[in-house]
Structures are given as structure tokens and as C-alpha cells.
Amino acid sequence: MSALLIRDLRLAFRAGGGFGLGLGFFLILAVLVPLGVGPDQSTLGLIAPGILWVGALLACLLSLDRLFALDFEDGSLDLLATSPIPMEGVVAIKALAHWLTTCLPLALAAPLLGVLLNLPITAYAALLLSLLIGTPALSMIGAFGAALTVGLKRGGLLLSLLVLPLYVPTLVFGAQSVTRAAQGLDITTPLALLAGITAGSLALLPFAAAFALRINLR
């Protein structure tokens, strides 16, 4: 299993692996929003939690269509399916690799972008924490969507259509944690609910995704 993780990380960091694209997108978004909304500091501070969470979510979505598609095209997925590793394990590892290469950098960069958006000082810890807790669910839900659309020629757009509604609960609890922290409220409840969604996704979705992958391979 670790061999698969190491290979995926290696592929991501080598040329053409697409590492950093999501981060760049996230940065551009954080620049474009003030340009669109206007420079008023208090308005920006008010919407910053939502913008940062929506931005992270969209950036995470960007690289999802490659998650299984590349392995599907070059036959690796067939070979992995006949290997001793269960398909559920393959899904979980690939989601983990996606999280490490896409979501983790987003979570770490988010506080910096918070400065650009005048995020209230009380909300930085909550922003980092909620992204760290919530983004694994984004990767896992995304892996499920990628598994559904892996055999399709133009799966990218469909993937967004399928995955974005599934992101709603994660987004709500994630962004609420940050918003409440910005208002100086207690954030235990949204964080706990967010953790619950992540735990549930990690526990159940590998099975659904593996089922979808096996169907797409046959």
C-alpha cells in the first residue's frame, strides 16, 4: 500500500504532475474576489471565511478528474484490480495522496490568504483547524465522484456536477466554524460535526468508490 502512496506522490511532484496548480488557483481566487467585491475592509472581513472555504473546495475539485483517469487510461487500474491490494485500499490511498498533494497545501496556505481578505484575527486558528479536519472529506467525496466518472470521455464537468452538491455539508460546517470564530463564538459544535462528516466519509465512501471502479472496469 505504501508503494502506491509513494508512487502517487512521486508522480505528482514530477514534471506534469500538476502539483501546485490548485494552490495557484486558490491564490488567484483570493485576489479576484476583492477586485470583484471592492476594497472595503469590513465587507472583506465579513465574507472572508466563506470565500476561503469555497476557494479551497473549488481548488480541491480541480485535480480530481485526474485521480483515477490517468491510471484508467494507461491500464494501471486493471493491473491494480488484479493485484493483492483490495480496491477499497487503492481508493483510500489515492484519496490520501490527493489530500497530501492538493488539500494539505491549501489548508496551510489559507491563513496567508486570510490576511489578503482581512480575516479577523480570532479566526485564523479556526480556519486552519477546520480546513485540516474538513478537507479529508473533500478528497474522499471527490474520489467517489472520480470513480463514478472514470470511464467517461468528458468526465470533468460531470464530476463537478456530481461532487459539488455532496460538498454542501462539509462546506457549511467548515465555513460556519470560521465565521463563528470570527464573531468570537464557540466553534466546538461545527468542528465536531465537520469531524463527523470526515470520519463517516472516510469509513464508508471507499466501499462505494471501489464498487463504482469495479463497474467501470468491466
Binding site: D74, S76, T82, S83, I85
Partner: peptide, 30 residues
């Protein structure tokens, strides 16, 4: 778990070296 399958697509990753490609599949099979 006794079948090794090989078809038209070889599952080779272009950016990995020959040895890395092979080491990966060896490791997957333990």
C-alpha cells in the same frame, strides 16, 4: 491471487524510470 494479467495497456508511468516502474509493481505484490 495467482493471476498476472497483461494487456494492451502496460500501466507504465511516463515520468518514472524503468526501475521505478518495476519496483512499484514488485512492491504492490509484496
Amino acid at each position: 491471487d495467482q493471476i498476472a494479467y497483461a494487456a494492451h495497456a502496460d500501466g507504465i508511468k511516463a515520468t518514472l524510470t524503468v526501475a521505478e516502474n518495476l519496483q512499484f509493481w514488485a512492491a504492490i505484490h509484496g
